[in-house]
Every structure is written in C-alpha cells, then in structure tokens.
C-alpha cells in the first residue's frame, strides 16, 4: 500500500506465543517473557504526504477528494487505501493523504483543481514525517511498551488509524495488513524513535497479547 516497498511478511496474523507461568519458582527464569522471534523494525521509504485542512465530511469537500483521488473520506480514526494511495483521518477537519513516493505533486495539483473555490488548505508535508515498519509476531507488544492505546487484535486491526504517543513523542499508527504496523513520526525525532523501537525490539516481550 501507499507505495511503500512491500517486504515479505507472513500471511495473516502470526500465531501468538502465549506466556504460560510456571507455578514453581524458577530462579534462573525471567519475568514472563518470550524471546524475540523475528519481530523487526525498519525505516522505510517515506511516501508522499499531503495535509488537507477542510470540513472533510461536507459534501463539496468529500466529493472533490473523491474526484481527485478516487477514495471516500474515511470514518474517524480509520484509513482507506485504493491503488497505492491512502486517506488517513487525522481529525474532524484534517486528512493525511499518502501517495506513492514522489507522487505528492501531481496529487496536490489534482486536489487543488478539484477543491477550487472551496474553503480548504492543502500543504505538501512529504518531508515532515518519516515512516517505520514494525513486522513480526510480537509487533503489537513491541509498540505496547510505549503506547497507551489498546493494541489487542479485538481493539486494533487493519483499517484503524490512531494518533497517539510512543515513549515521549507523538506518532500515528496503522496496520497495512495483519502482520505489520506502519508508524509515522516527525522527522526531527526520527533518530529517537528508531533508537526507541530498536531498543524495544532487542529485549524480550511480555507475552501478554
């Protein structure tokens, strides 16, 4: 999706490994943990990104966006993807439009003409944020080390889009498919976020989810 280079990821949700406590003391054991079996963190090529500020639920804006991009306005906290482009719901009056790499210019042009005369603001923000991919069986638990959102499969799944915090910085999260997360953060803190994610991936996981 969104022009991000696809990486081989196991089909579907990888079976979760459950932590089963021993009822006898084990002096050489750790806290309930399971080792990291293939959960990885990677910086990925950043897609083109456009901020649209406007009354996105209003018909004129929604139809202009549909005309220019061919995607409906997503429901709150959702992301919709069609043909390599995505619309992410940021707030009641803000969309983040993800395009294939380098594709923001033409999309802005199409949107600008479709939105002609409407009270809305477009800005190319392709350079403002960077993107990470977290993939593998423990990706939910990795992010849950620093994010207060309920990331259990019942509460968060592909199609959901959530702005929250990771450690001490704002991030946005979504799942392009059941085996992986995409995470956006601001460019200036991307070193911090990468370090944070790598640190979290090095350790073991709680085995909770």
């Amino acid at each position: 999706m969104t022009g991000l280079e696809p990486e081989p990821v196991p089909e579907g949700e990888v079976p979760r490994q459950r932590f089963v406590p021993e009822s006898l003391p084990a002096p050489d054991g750790g806290p309930g943990t399971k080792p990291n079996s293939g959960t990885s963190v990677m910086r990925v090529a950043t897609p083109g990104m456009i901020t649209l500020r406007g009354r996105i639920r209003s018909e004129p804006i929604a139809s202009a966006v549909r005309k220019a991009i061919g995607i409906d306005i997503p429901e709150p906290r959702r992301i919709l993807s069609v043909d390599g482009r995505s619309l992410a719901w940021m707030s009641p009056d803000e969309l983040l439009i993800l395009t294939p790499l380098g594709g923001s210019g033409s999309t802005i042009a199409a949107l600008s003409s479709a939105l002609e005369g409407q009270y809305a603001l477009l800005a190319d923000v392709s350079d403002a944020r960077l993107c990470f991919r977290i993939a593998g069986p423990s990706s939910r638990e990795l992010i849950a080390k620093g994010c207060p959102v309920d990331l259990s499969p019942e509460a968060f799944s592909p199609g959901d889009f959530r702005r929250s915090r990771l450690g001490q910085v704002p991030v946005a999260l979504w799942m392009p498919d059941p085996g992986q997360f995409m995470l956006l953060c601001f460019r200036s803190v991307s070193d911090f976020v990468e370090h944070w994610l790598q640190n979290a991936a090095q350790g073991e996981f709680s085995g909770y989810l």
Binding site: P76, R77, S91, P92, P148, V149, R165
Partner: peptide, 12 residues
C-alpha cells in the same frame, strides 16, 4: 468527542 478515542490522560 472529536475523534471518539478513549484517551488516556497521557494523551491529553
């Protein structure tokens, strides 16, 4: 009420 999220105080 704007996005419907049950927001933890650390998001607020």
């Amino acid at each position: 009420p704007c996005c419907g999220a049950e927001a933890d105080e650390t998001e607020l």
